[in-house]
Nucleic acid binder design. Structure first.
Lengths: 138, 138
DNA sequence: GCCAGTCTTGGACTTCGTCCAAGTCGATGG
DNA sequence: CCATCGACTTGGACGAAGTCCAAGACTGGC
Protein backbone atom coordinates (compact mmCIF):
# COMPACT_ATOMS: atom_id res chain seq x y z
CA UNK A 1 0.00 0.00 0.00
CA UNK A 2 2.87 2.36 0.60
CA UNK A 3 4.29 1.20 -2.73
CA UNK A 4 2.54 4.07 -4.37
CA UNK A 5 3.98 6.58 -1.92
CA UNK A 6 7.43 5.07 -2.46
CA UNK A 7 7.13 5.38 -6.20
CA UNK A 8 5.98 8.95 -5.91
CA UNK A 9 8.84 9.89 -3.68
CA UNK A 10 11.16 8.19 -6.12
CA UNK A 11 9.77 10.38 -8.85
CA UNK A 12 10.83 13.50 -7.00
CA UNK A 13 7.55 14.34 -5.37
CA UNK A 14 7.69 16.66 -2.44
CA UNK A 15 5.69 14.65 0.04
CA UNK A 16 2.99 16.79 1.63
CA UNK A 17 0.21 15.65 3.89
CA UNK A 18 -2.32 16.52 1.17
CA UNK A 19 -0.67 14.37 -1.48
CA UNK A 20 -0.27 11.53 0.96
CA UNK A 21 -3.96 11.64 1.81
CA UNK A 22 -5.05 11.65 -1.82
CA UNK A 23 -2.75 8.77 -2.62
CA UNK A 24 -4.08 6.84 0.36
CA UNK A 25 -7.68 7.38 -0.66
CA UNK A 26 -7.02 6.01 -4.13
CA UNK A 27 -4.89 3.19 -2.91
CA UNK A 28 -7.43 2.23 -0.28
CA UNK A 29 -10.59 1.00 -1.93
CA UNK A 30 -10.26 -0.01 -5.52
CA UNK A 31 -13.40 1.66 -6.76
CA UNK A 32 -13.75 4.29 -9.42
CA UNK A 33 -14.18 7.54 -7.57
CA UNK A 34 -15.01 10.93 -8.97
CA UNK A 35 -12.79 13.86 -8.04
CA UNK A 36 -15.44 15.04 -5.61
CA UNK A 37 -15.67 11.66 -3.96
CA UNK A 38 -11.92 11.61 -3.59
CA UNK A 39 -12.14 15.07 -2.09
CA UNK A 40 -14.86 14.00 0.33
CA UNK A 41 -12.83 11.02 1.54
CA UNK A 42 -9.70 13.16 1.74
CA UNK A 43 -11.48 15.77 3.84
CA UNK A 44 -12.41 13.04 6.31
CA UNK A 45 -8.71 12.49 6.94
CA UNK A 46 -7.47 16.04 6.51
CA UNK A 47 -10.24 18.60 6.91
CA UNK A 48 -8.41 21.58 5.43
CA UNK A 49 -7.59 20.01 2.09
CA UNK A 50 -8.94 22.02 -0.82
CA UNK A 51 -10.70 20.94 -3.94
CA UNK A 52 -8.03 22.53 -6.11
CA UNK A 53 -5.33 20.41 -4.53
CA UNK A 54 -7.27 17.24 -5.08
CA UNK A 55 -7.69 18.14 -8.73
CA UNK A 56 -4.00 19.00 -9.04
CA UNK A 57 -2.88 15.82 -7.39
CA UNK A 58 -5.19 13.63 -9.42
CA UNK A 59 -3.94 15.30 -12.57
CA UNK A 60 -0.35 14.64 -11.59
CA UNK A 61 -1.06 11.02 -10.74
CA UNK A 62 -2.67 10.62 -14.14
CA UNK A 63 0.24 12.11 -16.03
CA UNK A 64 2.65 9.94 -14.07
CA UNK A 65 0.60 6.97 -15.20
CA UNK A 66 -0.19 5.90 -11.65
CA UNK A 67 -3.90 6.40 -12.06
CA UNK A 68 -6.23 6.18 -15.06
CA UNK A 69 -8.85 8.72 -15.96
CA UNK A 70 -12.13 7.22 -17.10
CA UNK A 71 -14.69 9.33 -18.95
CA UNK A 72 -17.85 7.36 -19.60
CA UNK A 73 -20.30 10.18 -20.02
CA UNK A 74 -20.66 13.88 -19.52
CA UNK A 75 -20.76 13.49 -15.77
CA UNK A 76 -17.66 13.71 -13.66
CA UNK A 77 -14.48 11.93 -14.68
CA UNK A 78 -13.62 8.92 -12.60
CA UNK A 79 -10.22 7.82 -11.39
CA UNK A 80 -9.05 4.26 -11.61
CA UNK A 81 -6.16 3.32 -9.33
CA UNK A 82 -5.65 0.03 -11.13
CA UNK A 83 -3.34 1.57 -13.75
CA UNK A 84 -0.68 -1.11 -13.82
CA UNK A 85 -2.80 -3.96 -15.05
CA UNK A 86 -4.36 -3.36 -18.46
CA UNK A 87 -8.11 -3.75 -18.43
CA UNK A 88 -11.34 -2.33 -19.76
CA UNK A 89 -14.60 -1.20 -18.26
CA UNK A 90 -18.16 -2.33 -17.87
CA UNK A 91 -20.52 0.54 -17.16
CA UNK A 92 -24.08 0.42 -15.88
CA UNK A 93 -26.31 2.69 -17.96
CA UNK A 94 -28.63 3.02 -14.99
CA UNK A 95 -26.54 4.00 -12.00
CA UNK A 96 -23.16 4.65 -13.63
CA UNK A 97 -21.36 1.94 -11.67
CA UNK A 98 -18.09 0.81 -13.23
CA UNK A 99 -16.33 -2.55 -13.02
CA UNK A 100 -12.97 -3.52 -14.38
CA UNK A 101 -13.14 -6.35 -16.91
CA UNK A 102 -10.58 -8.37 -18.82
CA UNK A 103 -11.82 -9.37 -22.24
CA UNK A 104 -9.93 -11.89 -24.30
CA UNK A 105 -8.44 -10.82 -27.61
CA UNK A 106 -6.56 -7.72 -28.57
CA UNK A 107 -8.63 -5.03 -30.23
CA UNK A 108 -5.52 -3.11 -31.29
CA UNK A 109 -4.69 -5.96 -33.63
CA UNK A 110 -8.22 -5.82 -35.00
CA UNK A 111 -7.75 -2.45 -36.63
CA UNK A 112 -6.36 -2.98 -40.14
CA UNK A 113 -3.92 -0.47 -41.58
CA UNK A 114 -6.49 0.61 -44.12
CA UNK A 115 -8.66 1.75 -41.24
CA UNK A 116 -5.98 3.83 -39.57
CA UNK A 117 -6.01 6.82 -41.90
CA UNK A 118 -2.38 7.63 -41.18
CA UNK A 119 -2.99 7.94 -37.46
CA UNK A 120 -0.35 6.75 -35.02
CA UNK A 121 -2.62 4.54 -32.95
CA UNK A 122 -1.29 4.03 -29.45
CA UNK A 123 -4.15 2.90 -27.31
CA UNK A 124 -7.57 1.29 -27.29
CA UNK A 125 -10.28 1.70 -24.76
CA UNK A 126 -13.19 -0.71 -24.69
CA UNK A 127 -16.33 0.19 -22.81
CA UNK A 128 -19.07 -2.36 -22.36
CA UNK A 129 -22.47 -0.91 -21.51
CA UNK A 130 -25.42 -2.58 -19.93
CA UNK A 131 -27.41 -2.80 -16.75
CA UNK A 132 -26.11 -4.02 -13.45
CA UNK A 133 -28.19 -6.64 -11.62
CA UNK A 134 -29.82 -3.99 -9.42
CA UNK A 135 -30.78 -1.67 -12.26
CA UNK A 136 -31.98 -4.57 -14.41
CA UNK A 137 -34.62 -5.39 -11.78
CA UNK A 138 -36.09 -1.89 -11.84
CA UNK B 1 -31.39 12.59 -47.38
CA UNK B 2 -35.03 13.17 -46.58
CA UNK B 3 -35.16 9.60 -45.28
CA UNK B 4 -34.38 10.93 -41.87
CA UNK B 5 -37.18 13.49 -42.06
CA UNK B 6 -39.56 10.77 -43.24
CA UNK B 7 -38.65 8.52 -40.36
CA UNK B 8 -39.08 11.34 -37.91
CA UNK B 9 -42.48 12.25 -39.23
CA UNK B 10 -43.40 8.57 -39.05
CA UNK B 11 -42.45 8.60 -35.41
CA UNK B 12 -44.99 11.29 -34.69
CA UNK B 13 -42.71 14.27 -34.74
CA UNK B 14 -44.36 17.60 -35.20
CA UNK B 15 -42.24 18.96 -38.01
CA UNK B 16 -41.00 22.43 -37.24
CA UNK B 17 -38.52 24.47 -39.21
CA UNK B 18 -36.06 24.19 -36.33
CA UNK B 19 -36.14 20.42 -36.24
CA UNK B 20 -35.89 20.22 -39.97
CA UNK B 21 -32.80 22.40 -39.94
CA UNK B 22 -31.09 20.37 -37.23
CA UNK B 23 -31.85 17.13 -39.04
CA UNK B 24 -30.51 18.59 -42.26
CA UNK B 25 -27.29 19.72 -40.63
CA UNK B 26 -26.64 16.25 -39.26
CA UNK B 27 -27.68 14.50 -42.40
CA UNK B 28 -25.57 16.80 -44.55
CA UNK B 29 -21.92 16.30 -43.80
CA UNK B 30 -21.06 13.10 -42.04
CA UNK B 31 -18.68 14.56 -39.55
CA UNK B 32 -18.84 14.44 -35.78
CA UNK B 33 -20.12 17.80 -34.73
CA UNK B 34 -20.45 19.20 -31.24
CA UNK B 35 -23.78 20.65 -30.16
CA UNK B 36 -22.36 24.12 -30.63
CA UNK B 37 -21.15 23.35 -34.13
CA UNK B 38 -24.57 22.01 -34.99
CA UNK B 39 -26.03 25.19 -33.59
CA UNK B 40 -23.67 27.35 -35.64
CA UNK B 41 -24.57 25.56 -38.86
CA UNK B 42 -28.24 25.67 -37.99
CA UNK B 43 -28.08 29.40 -37.36
CA UNK B 44 -26.69 29.85 -40.85
CA UNK B 45 -29.91 28.42 -42.25
CA UNK B 46 -32.33 29.71 -39.66
CA UNK B 47 -30.94 32.66 -37.74
CA UNK B 48 -33.44 32.68 -34.89
CA UNK B 49 -32.89 29.10 -33.75
CA UNK B 50 -31.87 28.86 -30.13
CA UNK B 51 -29.23 26.82 -28.42
CA UNK B 52 -31.82 25.17 -26.18
CA UNK B 53 -33.75 23.88 -29.16
CA UNK B 54 -30.64 22.41 -30.72
CA UNK B 55 -29.90 20.61 -27.47
CA UNK B 56 -33.47 19.37 -27.20
CA UNK B 57 -33.57 18.14 -30.75
CA UNK B 58 -30.23 16.41 -30.52
CA UNK B 59 -31.36 14.70 -27.33
CA UNK B 60 -34.51 13.49 -29.02
CA UNK B 61 -32.62 12.22 -32.05
CA UNK B 62 -30.34 10.31 -29.71
CA UNK B 63 -33.14 8.67 -27.79
CA UNK B 64 -34.83 7.72 -31.03
CA UNK B 65 -31.59 6.04 -32.03
CA UNK B 66 -31.21 8.17 -35.14
CA UNK B 67 -27.99 9.74 -33.96
CA UNK B 68 -25.19 8.52 -31.70
CA UNK B 69 -23.69 10.48 -28.87
CA UNK B 70 -19.92 10.19 -28.63
CA UNK B 71 -18.13 11.24 -25.47
CA UNK B 72 -14.41 10.95 -25.91
CA UNK B 73 -13.19 13.33 -23.25
CA UNK B 74 -14.40 16.07 -20.97
CA UNK B 75 -14.87 18.41 -23.88
CA UNK B 76 -18.19 18.69 -25.66
CA UNK B 77 -20.15 15.61 -26.67
CA UNK B 78 -20.16 14.91 -30.37
CA UNK B 79 -23.03 13.68 -32.47
CA UNK B 80 -22.62 10.94 -35.01
CA UNK B 81 -25.30 10.75 -37.69
CA UNK B 82 -24.03 7.36 -38.83
CA UNK B 83 -26.17 5.47 -36.30
CA UNK B 84 -27.43 2.73 -38.55
CA UNK B 85 -24.12 1.16 -39.45
CA UNK B 86 -22.24 -0.23 -36.46
CA UNK B 87 -18.75 1.18 -36.16
CA UNK B 88 -16.19 2.44 -33.70
CA UNK B 89 -14.06 5.54 -33.36
CA UNK B 90 -10.51 6.68 -33.80
CA UNK B 91 -9.75 9.85 -31.87
CA UNK B 92 -6.79 12.19 -32.20
CA UNK B 93 -5.38 13.00 -28.78
CA UNK B 94 -4.05 16.25 -30.19
CA UNK B 95 -6.89 18.01 -31.95
CA UNK B 96 -9.84 15.83 -30.97
CA UNK B 97 -10.68 14.83 -34.53
CA UNK B 98 -12.79 11.70 -34.83
CA UNK B 99 -13.00 9.15 -37.64
CA UNK B 100 -15.31 6.20 -37.96
CA UNK B 101 -13.49 2.89 -38.16
CA UNK B 102 -14.54 -0.71 -38.70
CA UNK B 103 -12.31 -3.13 -36.82
CA UNK B 104 -12.54 -6.82 -37.50
CA UNK B 105 -13.70 -9.14 -34.74
CA UNK B 106 -16.51 -8.76 -32.28
CA UNK B 107 -15.49 -7.45 -28.87
CA UNK B 108 -18.86 -8.38 -27.36
CA UNK B 109 -17.97 -12.01 -27.88
CA UNK B 110 -14.64 -11.38 -26.16
CA UNK B 111 -16.19 -10.78 -22.78
CA UNK B 112 -16.56 -14.11 -21.00
CA UNK B 113 -19.54 -14.70 -18.73
CA UNK B 114 -17.29 -14.77 -15.71
CA UNK B 115 -16.36 -11.18 -16.49
CA UNK B 116 -19.92 -9.93 -16.74
CA UNK B 117 -20.78 -9.83 -13.04
CA UNK B 118 -24.46 -10.39 -13.68
CA UNK B 119 -24.73 -7.34 -15.92
CA UNK B 120 -26.98 -7.45 -18.96
CA UNK B 121 -24.39 -6.32 -21.47
CA UNK B 122 -26.00 -4.74 -24.50
CA UNK B 123 -23.36 -2.69 -26.21
CA UNK B 124 -19.64 -2.18 -26.69
CA UNK B 125 -17.88 0.95 -27.63
CA UNK B 126 -14.29 0.80 -28.81
CA UNK B 127 -12.23 3.96 -28.92
CA UNK B 128 -8.83 3.94 -30.52
CA UNK B 129 -6.59 6.81 -29.52
CA UNK B 130 -3.56 8.21 -31.24
CA UNK B 131 -2.33 11.15 -33.24
CA UNK B 132 -3.64 12.18 -36.61
CA UNK B 133 -1.04 12.83 -39.34
CA UNK B 134 -1.13 16.59 -38.74
CA UNK B 135 -0.70 16.39 -34.97
CA UNK B 136 2.00 13.73 -35.29
CA UNK B 137 4.19 16.20 -37.22
CA UNK B 138 4.03 18.82 -34.47
C1' DG C 1 -59.56 28.63 -39.79
C1' DC C 2 -59.50 27.20 -34.71
C1' DC C 3 -57.73 25.03 -30.86
C1' DA C 4 -55.15 22.06 -28.05
C1' DG C 5 -51.16 20.96 -26.89
C1' DT C 6 -46.44 20.44 -28.47
C1' DC C 7 -42.28 23.29 -29.50
C1' DT C 8 -39.32 27.09 -29.04
C1' DT C 9 -37.03 30.82 -26.64
C1' DG C 10 -33.52 33.07 -23.95
C1' DG C 11 -31.90 33.77 -19.72
C1' DA C 12 -30.87 31.95 -15.28
C1' DC C 13 -28.80 28.17 -13.15
C1' DT C 14 -25.81 23.77 -12.35
C1' DT C 15 -21.97 20.96 -12.62
C1' DC C 16 -17.42 19.92 -13.26
C1' DG C 17 -13.27 21.70 -13.78
C1' DT C 18 -9.32 25.32 -14.39
C1' DC C 19 -6.72 29.43 -13.13
C1' DC C 20 -4.41 32.66 -10.25
C1' DA C 21 -2.02 35.50 -6.73
C1' DA C 22 -0.81 35.10 -2.18
C1' DG C 23 0.67 32.56 1.46
C1' DT C 24 2.64 28.00 3.45
C1' DC C 25 5.70 24.36 4.11
C1' DG C 26 9.11 20.36 2.88
C1' DA C 27 13.71 19.20 2.37
C1' DT C 28 18.37 20.40 1.28
C1' DG C 29 22.87 22.76 2.53
C1' DG C 30 25.27 24.74 6.07
C1' DC D 1 19.06 22.13 13.96
C1' DC D 2 17.82 26.16 11.19
C1' DA D 3 17.31 29.05 7.26
C1' DT D 4 16.02 29.43 2.73
C1' DC D 5 13.87 28.80 -1.68
C1' DG D 6 11.03 27.16 -4.63
C1' DA D 7 7.52 23.82 -5.03
C1' DC D 8 2.68 23.20 -2.97
C1' DT D 9 -1.67 24.64 -1.35
C1' DT D 10 -5.65 27.64 -0.96
C1' DG D 11 -10.11 29.52 -1.97
C1' DG D 12 -12.44 32.28 -4.75
C1' DA D 13 -13.25 33.82 -9.33
C1' DC D 14 -13.84 32.24 -13.78
C1' DG D 15 -15.17 29.23 -17.88
C1' DA D 16 -17.25 25.63 -20.74
C1' DA D 17 -21.00 22.66 -21.62
C1' DG D 18 -25.36 21.61 -20.61
C1' DT D 19 -30.06 21.75 -18.23
C1' DC D 20 -34.30 23.95 -16.71
C1' DC D 21 -38.25 26.90 -16.86
C1' DA D 22 -42.22 29.97 -17.68
C1' DA D 23 -44.10 32.44 -21.35
C1' DG D 24 -45.28 32.76 -25.90
C1' DA D 25 -45.49 30.75 -30.85
C1' DC D 26 -46.80 27.29 -34.25
C1' DT D 27 -48.16 22.71 -36.14
C1' DG D 28 -51.51 19.54 -37.43
C1' DG D 29 -56.08 17.59 -36.83
C1' DC D 30 -60.68 18.68 -37.22
Amino acid sequence: MSDLLERLRGRGWRMTSQRRVVAEVLDGEHVHLTADEVHARAVAKLPEISRATVYNTLGELVSLGEVLEVTTDRRAKRYDPNAHQPHHHLVCAGCGAIRDVHPTGNPLADLPDTERFGFTVSDVEVTYRGLCPDCAKA
